[in-house]
Nucleic acid binder design. Structure first.
Lengths: 188, 188
DNA sequence: GTCTATAGCTAGATAGAC
DNA sequence: GTCTATCTAGCTATAGAC
């Protein structure tokens, strides 16, 4: 067999950048190919079902990253105290979104033109965020219903601050929101 | 002169629906034409510079609506007490976003593929939200810096709850967020 | 002012050489 | 496994009849 010119992981990184920046319909196969260093036909060899399969692979890749880096710390109550795990998760979230400069892939793929294609990925992804923050909130002594409400609020604040930061081209808004989230959990 | 088949305002309503749902690149001229009841060539007669002019007209139209219905109540301190004006504005915001089911046009047109085309509209639009809520917060006895921070937070919560509501297909999240905003201003 | 018809181009996707 | 070349369908935009 002929060797792969580009590793699977590097392909996914390139695809992610394009889908995040341009959304599903906005991402053209030429851009996707250029971003990976492969030609269009070679991308089809890797993803025989085409663009939708590429976007699904991206969602899976980012989901795995978030599982490891964000949700695992939040959920693993036997590792460190909740305060430490919350701070670690928030640090990783800043990395994930490049301090607010990256669009969220769930949001980029949930425009109405492509929402129905990825509906279940998006719902599953958002529910993971809510469940993980609910757990840490409970460990930090929020009541069960307060914990859930606070977790939903956290997701809303992250998504909203990404939108507003980009719109105003002021990424201190995102960073400030992350700090506010920390305060809310640690000094309720 | 031959009479207009469709009124300017009705055209803008149709264009708005399509741009909101599909973003700038996702909106095709065929869809835009179908949504207005005109043919493509007739749309070009109304908007000689094409799709970008259509999107700018939409931004202007929505901006005028928000000026009248949302910002005017918030800013007109001589009309009613601030509590009443805040409630009126929040009611109009629910109408604007169809109880959370409509995407925000500023967000739909601020994907990176089209962000640079509408940058100043988007910044101006978001700043109007922040200024109007800052004013009402000050009237409700927030300190100057608290008022500004709370206004930014309000915008973040509206945008974020629209994203999360659509992603989870649960529009009670948006309505609940609007209620929380009211509480935050009225019972700080 | 609205329409049909079409230009010119780029999209997503495929065939087949190497 | 990667490539060049190409297909068809859709895109934005325009020309010109009525």
């Amino acid at each position: 067999m002929r060797p792969q010119k580009v590793l699977e992981d590097d392909i996914l990184v390139g695809l992610t950048q394009v889908f995040r920046a341009r959304g599903y319909e906005g991402a053209s196969l030429k851009e996707l190919a250029d971003a990976t260093g492969l030609k269009k036909a070679s991308l089809y060899h890797r993803f025989p079902s085409g663009k939708q399969e590429m976007a699904e692979a991206v969602l899976g890749h980012v989901s795995t990253w978030a599982d490891q880096k964000v949700f695992k710390p939040l959920l693993n109550s036997e590792s460190f105290p909740p305060e430490v795990r919350l701070k670690e998760a928030l640090t990783q979230i800043k990395t994930l979104y490049n301090d607010g400069k990256n669009t969220c892939i769930l949001r980029a793929l949930s425009m109405e033109d492509s929402l129905y294609l990825f509906e279940s990925h998006i719902q599953t992804g958002m529910n993971k965020w809510i469940n993980a923050f609910t757990q840490i909130a409970e460990e930090l002594n929020f009541s069960k219903s307060d914990a859930k409400a606070e977790a939903v609020n956290t997701l809303i604040n992250i998504q909203g601050s990404l939108v507003v930061s980009k719109g105003l081209n002021d990424y201190s808004i995102f960073l400030n929101t992350i700090k506010n989230i920390e305060d809310k959990y640690l000094n309720p």
